[in-house]
Structures are given as structure tokens and as C-alpha cells.
Amino acid sequence: MSAPPLRARRATRRDDTRLALLFILPATVGLVTFYFWPMIRGLWLSLTSWDLLSPAEFVGLQNYRDMAADPVFWNALRVTALYVVINIGVQTVAALLLAVLMQRLSQSTLLRSLVLAPYLVSNVVAALVFLWILDFQLGIGNQLLTWLGLDRIGFFTSQTWAIPTIALVNVWRHMGYTALLIFAGLQTIPHTVYEAARMDGASETRTFFRITVPLLRPILGLVLIISVIGSFQVFDTVAVTTNGGPVDASRVLQLYIYDKAFAQFDFGYASALSVALLVLLMVVTFVQYRITRAGQTDLN
């Protein structure tokens, strides 16, 4: 601060190392303390047995062996996979449809804002609203079913419906956001390509499958990767609506981890479960990246 002014010198080309270190100091503290250190610590914890009261005890791979023999874990894995498939499947199709409709019909900001509205409320609020809308006795959803001459469905209380319902609630919340991501991707396709197609007399459907989808592939791939990663971590909606029930029908992996840690104080095992989730995410992401070739474009 008290240094003499460096008027005539090429001040801009000066070496700023000291200042830079000062400027990245807070962010580095955050990075090391809350990203890297927990990574290392989580891996270490997964090799221990620890209930927070007595000191942690190193048990090697015992937690992982327990996990392999734990039916609740395998069930959680199956339930989570089912959730992801339904959630991502419906959400991607709906969002793609919405994005293409927005692009073809109207580019208005108002429309895009309305579509994004559910994303602004928390998962908790979304869960509670649908808990009410889909209530067995009083919910308007079940009233609609009876009007249509169908039987009432225990959306959150039946073993068959709990996971699909939760998956669809989250589709409701994320559909608009995903659509806007895809919409942004659509804007990168030069409209000369579309005009060329129109001149050749290609139909809308043909244009969609022969131009839009192939050219959108890298972005669709990225969107899928982002949303699948998010989808695997589902917790809020389940915790608020079913808390894993009925029986274990909606006990997703994340909820099981939470139960192990905060209800049974088995932090070692909970950490091992987290590692399993992490590995799963890495594998799924890698496979998706390869399949969708998200890193390459066909646009040149």
C-alpha cells in the first residue's frame, strides 16, 4: 500500500503473485476445508467403526464386507436406480419437448419465466404441495381419478406408487430448468441449417430427428450427466413425504446413509455407503460421457 506509485513503468505486466495469493486466500481456505479435506476424511472414515462417543477404530474393509451382505443396502440401490430411471426418463423427454416447443412457438421471456417457476420453490415446498394434492382422501389428484371412474391411488402410501410419485414430483420441479438448459443448447444450432431443411421440404418430425437431436447431442449429453448426478442424490422429497416407507419401498441410498449416521450413529458404515454412492456416480458419469460423446460436437 505504501509503495511509491509506479507511474512510468509497465505496471500491468508486473508480477502479481503476492496480491493473487491474498485474493485467493479465502477461496482456498474453503476449498481445502470443505471440499478436499472431507473427501480424504470420508474415505478414511469408511475404514473405521465410529459412533462419535468412543474413539474411531480402524476396521479395514469390514464396512464394505458388511455392505455386500446388507439386504437393505441392495434394496436401497435398487430403489435409487428405479427412481433415477423414472425421474430422468420422464424429465428428459418432457424437457426436450418443452424446449423445442418454446423454440418453435414463442421466444418470450414471460413464457420461459413461467416454466421456470417450480424451480424456485424448495424441494420441501414441492413435496408438501404434492402431499396435499395427492392426499388419499382429500387430494384433488385422487378426486380427478374418481371423476374419471378410476380407483383412488395411495400415491405416497402404496409400495408400488411411492417411488414413481416421488420421481414425478421432482420432474415437476426440475422440468422447466432442464428445458431452459436444452433451450440454450437449441440456440447454438444455426438457423441456416433449419432453413436449408425447410427448402428441401423436410417435415417437422424429420427435421427434429435428423437435425435437432443429432446437433443437440453434446448438450443433451451434458444435461443428462448433470441431471443424473443430481437425481442419484435424491433425499429431500423422500424425507418429507414417505421417510423411506412404506416398509423400505422408497428408502433411497441417501436416506439410508442419513439414517445410519444420524439415527444409528454408525458413521463408519454411513461413510462406506457414501463411498459406494460416489463410485457409482463416477462410473455412471463416465459411461454416459462415453455413450453420448458429450465432449464432441458435430457442428463443424
Binding site: 470443505f34 473427501m39 470420508g42 461413510s271 457414501s274
Partner: peptide, 10 residues
């Protein structure tokens, strides 16, 4: 780093 993995240690 998935946020979820950092929650317990944090």
C-alpha cells in the same frame, strides 16, 4: 466432488 459426499465429514 459431489456435495453429498462432503456432508458427513463436514
Amino acid at each position: 466432488v459431489p456435495v453429498i459426499f462432503t456432508l458427513l465429514p463436514n
